[in-house]
Simulated assay, not measured.
Amino acid sequence: MPHRVRSVLSAVLIGLACLLAPLGALSAWATYAIGDTGRYEATMAPLATDRNVRDAIAAGIADGIMHEVHVGPPLRGPVHSFVRDAARSFTRTPAFAAAWEAANRAAHDAVMQALRDGNDRAGNGRGAGGGGGDVTIDLAPVTEQVKRQLADNHMPLAGRIPVEHTATTVLHARDAGRLRKGFQVLEVAGFWLPVAAAVLASTGILVAVCRRRAVLATGLGTSLGAALLGAAVAIGRRLTLADLPAGVSRSAVGAVYDALTETLRQVSWLLLGLGLAVALGALLTGRIARARQASAALAPAAAEQPTQVRA
């Protein structure tokens, strides 16, 4: 094969490999970190102790209870403060951790069932349900726990708090239909894209005229792709927080976003460091090889010089 053809083919293969590397990391993250129920629960469980998340949930529970309990203006402020303190106290109990885990499991199962099976109703008998095609969960058990907490604190109105099975939408039907195909593609690509990237990079290096330069290009391209992936995660966080409706805690959503994307950020840093290490290794070995070649070229010339004899 002519050298020019080999160089072009190598460049194309390495370019594709560097492009597929961050996409493969993204698809693997969606499949194995978000799509897997066990890993998702392990990721979300520590958030039960996050202060921002607990404060946001306590505020939401208190607002929901006050919406159902009708109190006059003179007492509404103190009662709301009392209810919110009770809800915040509840978020520090093991019962809240269990409720948080159950709610996340129900929401994850409902969303995954809608995305994988095309069943938007997701009624699985574990707090998930739906109507009108929306994916919903029932948070009545959490309200019941807060009601018990208020009763233990001797709040007079605690026994009158209604505990209704209200469906809370976690994924609208219009969004489920739009996301389903993309998620299914990511699940298939979660295994094959990283494999394809490795095969293309190896093939590109093998067919290259100068393999050391090919390794250097692969390392730099991988680092660039990893940097773009990290930038995409950061931009996604900013856009997510910017699009939040009024009344939603930005700190709590930011904590959830950071927890969900932690693995993706770690992978991007790993790819960045690996790519730079490979590129640096290629540069150093190239310099060492050129230094050895120069030394080898000077040695015969020095041997051929006539020996000067002093008179």
Score class of each variant (00 low, 15 high):
His3Pro: 04
Val8Lys: 11
Leu9Phe: 09
Ile14His: 13
Gly15Lys: 15
Cys18Lys: 01
Leu20Ala: 03
Leu20Asp: 01
Pro22Asn: 06
Ala25Pro: 00
Ala25Gln: 06
Gly38Cys: 02
Arg39Val: 01
Tyr40Gln: 03
Ala42Val: 00
Thr43Glu: 02
Arg54Cys: 00
Gly60Arg: 08
Met66Ala: 07
Glu68Pro: 03
Val69Ser: 11
Pro78Trp: 13
Arg84Cys: 10
Asp85Gly: 13
Ala86Trp: 04
Arg88Thr: 12
Thr91Gln: 08
Thr93Lys: 13
Ala95Phe: 05
Ala97Arg: 10
Ala98Phe: 05
Trp100Ser: 03
Ala102Gly: 03
Asn104Gln: 08
Ala114Phe: 01
Pro141Arg: 07
Thr143Met: 14
Val146Ser: 05
His154Ser: 14
Ala158Gly: 12
Gly159Arg: 09
Glu164Pro: 07
Ala167Asp: 15
Ala167Gln: 15
Thr168His: 12
Leu171Phe: 02
His172Ala: 09
Ala173Gly: 12
Arg174Pro: 03
Ala176Thr: 13
Leu179Gly: 06
Ala189Lys: 06
Ser202Tyr: 11
Ser202Pro: 05
Thr203Tyr: 08
Val207Ser: 05
Val207Gln: 04
Leu216Gly: 12
Leu216Met: 12
Ala217Ile: 08
Leu220Cys: 11
Leu220Met: 09
Leu228Gly: 10
Leu228Asp: 10
Ala231Gly: 10
Ala234Phe: 06
Ile235Gly: 11
Gly236Trp: 05
Arg238Pro: 04
Thr240Trp: 03
Leu241Ala: 11
Leu244Trp: 12
Ala246Trp: 06
Ala255Val: 00
Glu262Gln: 15
Glu262Trp: 12
Ala277Glu: 11
Val278Ser: 05
Leu284Ile: 02
Thr285Gly: 01
Gln293Val: 01
Ser295Gln: 15
Ala301Cys: 05
Pro306Trp: 09
Arg310Cys: 05
